[in-house]
Design a protein around this nucleic acid. Sequence first.
DNA 1: ACATTGACCTGAGAGC
DNA 2: TGCTCTCAGGTCAATG
Length: 264
Amino acid sequence: MPELPDVQVFKEYLDATALHQRIDHVHVAARDILDEVSASTLRRHLKGRSFDSTRRHGKHLFVEVEGDDVWLRLHFGMTGNLKYYEDDDEEPDHTRLRLDFANGYHLAYRNTRKLGQIGLVGDVDEYIEKEGLGPDALARDFDLRSFRQALEGRHGTIKGALMNQSVIAGIGNIYADEMLFYAGVHPEAKIDRLSDDTIGEIFRAMKAVLESAIEARVRDFPRNFLVPRREEGAECPRCHGEITKTSVSGRSTYFCPDHQTGKR
DNA sequence: ACATTGACCTGAGAGC
DNA sequence: TGCTCTCAGGTCAATG
């Protein structure tokens, strides 16, 4: 689930629920998701304080801790999400970190497969730099020119580059497929063989797909999206071709061979 | 520079 | 019902 659009939704969810409330208890249920921070250090930084604001970069969510120059960093792996709930409700399954607020509510960071990470960072921009994350795919200043720049000098498949977090931050397997589907580009198309026009198409598809996906939390996915038809043999919602499954960059890939052309 | 594979974890769903 | 197998939207390291 958690690619850029999902993490954006988590951000808005946290903004609407858990900001500005005093944290009374910090319960670490699974130490192995902590990244370079001990449970006691985490507790020391959070307890008695509250969250001021949030920031998202790619698939990372940063939550600013009031009165302490530190941000909580949440990464959701493949199965992570957030749940804000009342005292009376039961703690959700697979809660790996639970914050208890003074108002009687709780914020659960859930993660079935524990492939995510929770950490503390002093400076968000520094962290992004240090980790070598590329520009956020939806950042306003990530324009067509920057997109071309990001792809420059690359020779691999377009899907591989789109999913590479050091090239562009935020796109994973599902939405890489979706934007190539939208743009009508074969997932194995080689970057250095793509025309300027096609790069432009992919860029516009990237923005449109990510924005629609965020929107889709409220409405449904547009009818002509691939997401609901990630199934071998399904009918292509655009051209009545047959959805095909392959593997690209080690990830299962669905596409329509009829209208996604330009392989190699 | 890139693709591929396996590892990290755990659970859901398919097939028997 | 229960067992086994396969697969999963992320990322890293090792290898070719």
